[in-house]
Amino acid sequence: MGTPDHPRGHMDQQHAAPTDPSNVVPLRVAGELPLPLEELVEQALRIALGLVTLSADALSEVVAKTLGGQAPAEPGGAGGSAASLPLLAGAAMGLAVGVARWGARATTTVIRTGEIVFSPVTTSVPFRDGMRRLGAKLGALDARWREERPREEDAAQAFVRLLVPQIAEAVLDQVDLNAIVAERVDVDRVVEGVDLDAVVARVDLDAVVARVDLDRILERVDLGAVVDRIPLDDVVARIDVDDIVARVDLERVVDRIDVDAVAAKLDIEAVVRRLDLAAIAREVVDELDLPEIIRESMGSMTGETVGGIRVQSMNADRAISSLVDRLLRRSQADPDAETPD
């Protein structure tokens, strides 16, 4: 990985060299036609040399880091004595490649010459019989190998399964993965590439909620502390109780109340038993002034009758008095005549 500024370009540069066709050693895989003997030998030598080269590079780098120095410079870098050792090593490798190519050709030539020289022998009947018997024995050995191969492979796989975790653990102990991730991983870019909506869409929230033990959570909640932090006075001050009451349809509420059922549930006898009716009656009678009430009621009943009699008799008095005054030709409305002296 490179810096966030040019991550893609850096990676392309690193991968560009191995993809150069001129530097690629074509590898043959199973199913393809067998190589000529000369090319087969040359390729085997090239692989061996490549492994040696890589091992040498890694070994030299490890040695340099262990000793606290700088890794050896790349070929073609700064000149001088520091670059002389890799230069000699490269020259030795080039020489080895040439020798290997030459040796392959020589070996091929020797083998083909041998085939020609020993062809009378190899084409003779005894030799062919011997080779046939040898082939039969080799075929029997091969069959035996094929028969035992699964067991050998199982043993090897078991060994590898035991060995790999230990190796991996030993390697991870030596590696600071946190530092590597912090140094080489662009977390922001990784997060940008993640479709969180898709992730959330794939989450089964019902299953997650079903796994949550709400009872345990609620047991850990201090409701008293939560309520203490709520300014109830402010909350209550913001509630318009009049508005709430105005929204309540009391008539509907009352209509839904089954008064008969409520009355049926009441134990009126128990209530009456708990009342001291005698004391209540005494208190009520004490509060009432019955004689006064009777007096007032009687007075109000007789008052109107008596008042009517009085008024009518008084009018009759005045009528007779005025009649007598007219008969006697006496002046009326003498104040002194109707008041005491």
Binding site: I309, R310, S313, M314, A316, D317, R318, I320, S321, A337, E338, T339, P340
Partner: peptide
């Protein structure tokens, strides 16, 4: 009429 002298009808009835 309070305090005035009563006539004959009222007195006869009483």
């Amino acid at each position: 009429m309070q305090g005035r002298r009563a006539g004959v009808v009222s007195r006869v009835m009483a």
